[in-house]
Amino acid sequence: MGNSISDGLPPPSVPRSRKASDSRTEAAAVADIAPAIEAEQEISDEKLLIAVGNSKDRQAFDQLFKRFAKRIFAMGMKLTRNEQLSNDLVQEAMLTVWQKAPLYDLDRGTAQSWIFTLTRNRCFDMLRKLKRQPSTVNADDIWPQEGEHDGNMVHEEQGSQEVEIAQIEAYYEQLPDAQREVVEQIYIHDRTHEEAAEHLQIPLGTLKSRLRLAVGKLRHLIGIEQ
């Protein structure tokens, strides 16, 4: 298997269209419009993953499944040399993609790299289980995804000391654009994390990590001043 020529699909190097898009369901929308496989090639893996994480977009997940199932199977064959295990790996890894998509952070790497490390982790755990090794640790302890353990920190940090509003505004202006727009969404427009991520077209995980960085920086600046 794996030797079939890609059934008339255009090569992956098809230039990506740069059309402006603010629709969160772009992936789904495009997939709806046409069976045009060509269109599927234009949507980046990151966009699909964002659609899955931010709006549980089933069509986008379907696309990711199509793009990665064989690759995951191949990694499984390489590490386990067992077809059944490799099929199980496809299932487990794609389930993790679905479950953890909201934690994907654009600022920390590509969607491919995210799926690669997540597949490695699932495979590592499968092999440990097969060898009946003690469950003292698992792959996610060995390769922690930063941001996974501190999802709540932003909430905890909301109750800060009293500071002059004007002072905060001055610091706020100093934040890098990417962080400032996140703070703006949450604290000025009073949007939920989910709404803000959708509006900015970034993964929820990225929103949270940028917010954490921004809040940390503001607190730091305020701390120095006092």
């Binding site: 794996g2 994480g53 997940f61 299932q91 389930l95 679905w98 909201p102």
Partner: peptide, 23 residues
């Protein structure tokens, strides 16, 4: 970059996955 063909097996797997809650 071969993509996976749609099949009924595959569709039911995707169905069962998207029925799971996200983190």
């Amino acid at each position: 970059s071969d993509s996976t063909e749609s099949s009924s097996d595959y569709a039911s797997l995707v169905d069962s996955i998207v029925a799971q809650p996200q983190f």
